[in-house]
Amino acid sequence: MKTEVINRVVLTEKKTSEWRSYELAGFWALRLTLVLVILILGVIVFDIVSKGAGVINWEFLTQPPRVGMTEGGIFPAIVGTFYVTLITIAFAVPLGVGAAIYLNEYAVQGKFTRLVRMSVRNLAGVPSIVFGLFGMAVFVKIFGFGPSLIAAGFTLGLLTLPVTVTASEEALRTVPRAYREGSFALGATRWQVVRTVVLPRAIPGILTGTILGLARAAGETAPILATGAAFFLPHLPDSIRSQFMALPYHLFIMSTQHHAISQVRPIAYGTALVLLALVCLLNLAAVLLRKRYRDKVAKGL
């Protein structure tokens, strides 16, 4: 006991300048963590860009792979990722936004809605390989889609649902109560209130959240591994029941499964760069959309 008291006295007697130097050190430690984060990101991007930029040309982007995937381009993978993302949108957006509207605008708030919300949020933490296996069991087998664009798109859709629902709900919640009340007081039905007043205000947030979710889905490999992505296809998918090539899966093949990995390393880097650019593009689209709608809201229209 006695020593503790003494220690405390000693502590308080320390000079303030000494404390200030501690604080300064702490500051620099925090700053260092930030620098580290940026550095890591920088190294990754630099590595991919420097090694991948060399192979990117018109042919790489518009031609299918040739000679056992050691030459040629990645066109089918780009198209496949594009198609599967479209199906993901078609599946996840109506379902996610609809669920969010129901949860936030219609459902009586209580234990049940809390439980649903909690489940949806926890769904976001489920590993993507689990989604992949679930998709294989349900969409490929039970629904009988077979390995296909639609099975993979739905699986990716499930993966993005938590993000879509949560982002949409957040967006709906930010719409001021005064607008809802004003609309109800004019004799609007609940759906009219949602359609004419709530949704127009919530759409920027919904879009942003959805696009960010899609960007994540577009880069996923595990969920499409067992649901429709193909190692190599000589032609482009011609229906939603076709198998397809996809950028993330192609990258996985080129860097781990190919018979001449070191030979195709540049192609792998090129694929990574294209995938990275695609995801960045999607994120950029989200930022621009948000800005456009913010400006509109700021103008009050």
């Binding site: 607008y179 009340e181 609309s183 109800f184 007081a185 004019l186 039905t189 127009p200 009050g300 229209l301």
Partner: peptide, 21 residues
């Protein structure tokens, strides 16, 4: 209720025009 609210209009404490024209 929808018809009732059409017959009985309401003006609120804080002006709440919609963000429209």
């Amino acid at each position: 209720v929808v018809n009732l609210r059409k017959k009985v209009g309401m003006v609120f404490q804080h002006p709440n025009p919609f963000p429209k024209s």
